[in-house]
């Protein structure tokens, strides 16, 4: 059950993110990128196998049993990925605002969209 919920969450986030990424407005693109990065972060955690009620800690002294604790490495990776993704999104927001100010439009190509 857990697996299906997580897989569905990743799938929905990826699908919405991809759709938004292909939109012509810069703000939609940035939201799409954020959704995609959430999906990727969930994906990284899921790649360390899903476990319930298992701490990512090995008890001192005892011989560690891999089945009893969850994999700590993906959790460390996802922290790094979140921090980097956050910083890049902030940077992209600044560029987005600069592009809006310099070109007078929020189209990704910096030109007015004739189609609409």
């Amino acid at each position: 059950m857990n697996e299906i919920i997580v897989a569905l969450a990743i799938g929905v986030l990826t699908a919405s993110g991809t759709w938004l990424l292909l939109r012509p407005r810069t703000f939609q693109v940035i939201i799409g990128l954020s959704l995609l990065s959430y999906a990727v972060n969930l994906f990284i955690v899921a790649m360390g196998r899903l476990k319930v009620d298992a701490a990512p800690i090995v008890v001192a002294g005892a011989v560690p049993d891999p089945a009893a604790f969850s994999d700590p490495l993906p959790q460390a990776l996802v922290l790094t990925a979140i921090v980097i993704g956050f910083a890049m999104t902030a940077l992209l927001l600044v560029v987005l605002l600069a592009a809006r100010g310099l070109t007078g439009t929020d189209h990704v190509d910096g030109q007015k969209d004739e189609a609409r």
């Binding site: 990424l21 810069t26 693109v29 990128l33 995609l36 990065s37 990727v40 994906f43 990284i44 990925a81 980097i84 890049m88 940077l91 992209l92 560029v95 987005l96 600069a98 592009a99 310099l102 070109t103 990704v108 190509d109 910096g110």
Partner: peptide
């Protein structure tokens, strides 16, 4: 204007590539 416009594409393309990397 030209640099900001080109960089916008550059950043978005590379962010997507980074997600694929992950």
């Amino acid at each position: 204007s030209a640099r900001v416009r080109a960089s916008l594409h550059y950043i978005v393309v590379n962010l997507v590539a980074s997600l694929l990397f992950l």
